[in-house]
Amino acid sequence: MKYLLQRLAFYLVTAWAAITINFLIPRMMPGDPVQALLARFQGQLDTSAVDSLTALFGLDRNQSLWQQYTDYWSHLLDGDLGLSFTFFPTPVSEVIAQSLPWTLALVGLTTLISFVLGTGIGVFTGWRRGSWLDGLLPVTTFISAIPYFWLGLIAIALFAVKWPLFPESGGYDNSLVPAFDWPFISSALYHGVLPGLTIVLSAVAGWILGMRNMMVTVSSEDYVMVAQAKGLSERRVMFGYAARNAVLPNISGFALSIGFIVGGTLLVEMVFSYPGIGLQLFQAVGAKDYPLMQGVFLIITLSVLAANLLADVIYMALDPRTRREA
């Protein structure tokens, strides 16, 4: 418990540092978001509008940096991340709130599926090495070696264009109004099949390989031999002794990959024009939409930290050696 509190304190400090850097970077960059916005509206704004924009973005030159910093924090704690340029005057928090669920659902589910699938296959290939299951390895490794955007484009070319089985882009049918009803959810699932499948295909090999190698290593441990000599059932030896120890590195890898769910899917969402946070970030970069970028970065940072904390907790629950005695 003490260890957990220590970790928590460590992550709080890290979060504070990340947020502070997130605050400083746009202020140290050349160029001014207000000027950028003025350029977008091509001089259609008058001076009072410019002044209020400056105040709105928190870039008031009359304020000290410290003042800006404290304002930034108080806004942040209210959940106010400023206004987006691209979707002006929609608040950044709203833009993120709209796109985050798409990313979480698509990438979250596929990360979970590829982890469970890959680890499961890895357990069996590692336990019965030399069986036909080993034939899966070169195939999956080959697929995972293909650059993702190419895999995605091929998938679109084959299954959306040549044989139009699945939609080629978007997160749902545009004729539907987003709502929690069956037509919308089924449409969202249908649109998610192709991007989801390509993510699983490209990610599963890593899990299989990692788990198989650990299974092979752990299988030669003395305690696995002891378990066999004890006459335990093969299932108990395979899962309770071998896999239970072999899965530990995969678990921490999984917890870390959870952190990248939010940020690591830029390519998927670009290729499939999926309305997630990666696509949003891509558009924000293109439009020099600083507040939106800042907001997305903040969310990514916080989710990576949260995933790290989660990894610590899971590891502690699974491996008694990392627990410290109180």
Partner: peptide
């Protein structure tokens, strides 16, 4: 073989340090 093992014949292995599964009590 599973029924025979440990019931009739048990083994104390060489590696005292590694014969116990580290994640179980």
């Amino acid at each position: 073989l599973r029924a025979f093992r440990w019931q009739e014949l048990s083994i104390v292995f060489q590696g005292a340090m590694n014969s116990l599964n580290p994640v179980h009590t």
